[in-house]
Simulated scan of single mutants.
Amino acid sequence: MSFQSPASFAQFHSQGRHASYVRSMRSPGGILDLLEVQRPAGDMSRPAVPDIVLMVDLSGCSRVKGDLGGGRFDLATRRGTLALAAPDFATTVINEDSHRLRSLAFPLAQWQSALDEAAEGRFSFETSCIYGRVFDSAALRSAFRNLWSLCEDEGAPSRLLARAAGCEIFAELCRMGGAPFAPAKGGLAPWAERRCLELMQARLSEDIGLDELAAEAQLSSFHFARMFKKSIGVPPRVHLTRLRIERACELLERTDLSVTEIALEVGYSSNQVLARVFQRLRQMSPTDYRRAVRDPSRVYPAS
């Protein structure tokens, strides 16, 4: 029986019987999709999709058989096991147990240039030793966990977060896959650093993209992300968060704007999002911060 292939990994999981397995899904404008899926035992095969899909097993499975594009396998998985499914390949997966997965799906059209840059133009799915395989990587588990945690705080990832996280993950995938990979040797030129920092400050309320910052520095997104961290000491998304919280503090101190108005002013979708990020970085709520700075004689415990 013939069928039309879905346009993306996320689309496949939002339709038919697989939709009932999805526990959460977040997507930042087609850059990457984050899904958590509770899969029952049985046949979980899917048609080909034009996405590179990185999965982490959250529970383990006593036996999984299939083919993700790198040859057939028959093995047990444990919690934290990673798997990478090749794009444009109809995967076969049969689980002996129900289990829970988190997946990152990268549309190949969005990420091909980053792969080429990471591997100096010599990337190939055919020669990569981890594509279509089940494997382990503490670095990738950590990147996955950090991205998911940020999304739990802030909702759907910003374009800056999505692109920067993807560049970090692809750099590690290329390194593990045997592609030539050169570490960043230097940071941004002083003029490029100044212009990018000014742009971030001027557009705090917007969903600024890594591509826009990279264009300001006349660099590709992949190289810009690495060189920015070399210069500033933290990734672009971390620096932007710091700028936003610093500006929020100024507004809480000097204005009578509501927390909701301040959240929108510094680029967050709601007062709840601002409160979560503020609490994480300042160990108190925005409201308690405002009270503390306006009446220093009173002590407010961390909320």
Rank of each mutant, 00 (worst) to 15 (best):
D43H: 09
P47T: 08
A48H: 06
V49F: 10
P50N: 11
D51E: 13
I52M: 14
V53L: 06
L54P: 00
L54W: 02
M55N: 04
D57I: 05
L58E: 15
L58I: 12
L58H: 14
C61P: 00
S62L: 09
R63S: 15
V64F: 05
G66H: 07
D67H: 10
L68N: 00
G70E: 05
G70C: 07
R72Q: 13
L75M: 14
L75S: 10
A76H: 08
A76R: 14
T77W: 05
R78M: 09
R79Y: 08
G80Y: 11
T81C: 05
T81V: 00
L82V: 08
A83C: 11
A83S: 15
L84K: 03
L84M: 05
P87M: 14
P87L: 12
P87N: 13
F89I: 02
F89Q: 01
A90K: 04
I94T: 12
I94F: 11
E96N: 08
E96G: 00
S98M: 05
S98L: 03
H99A: 12
R100D: 08
R100K: 13
R102Q: 15
S103Q: 10
L104N: 04
A105S: 15
F106V: 06
F106W: 11
F106E: 08
P107Y: 08
A109H: 12
S113V: 04
S113M: 06
S113P: 00
A114T: 13
A114M: 10
L115K: 00
D116W: 05
E117M: 03
E120W: 03
R122P: 00
F123I: 01
S124I: 11
E126V: 14
E126F: 13
T127D: 08
T127W: 07
S128D: 09
S128P: 02
C129D: 02
C129Q: 09
C129A: 09
I130K: 03
Y131R: 01
Y131L: 11
D136P: 00
D136A: 12
A138E: 13
A138D: 12
A139D: 09
A139I: 12
S142Q: 14
R145I: 02
R145E: 14
N146Q: 14
N146P: 00
N146D: 14
N146E: 14
L147Y: 01
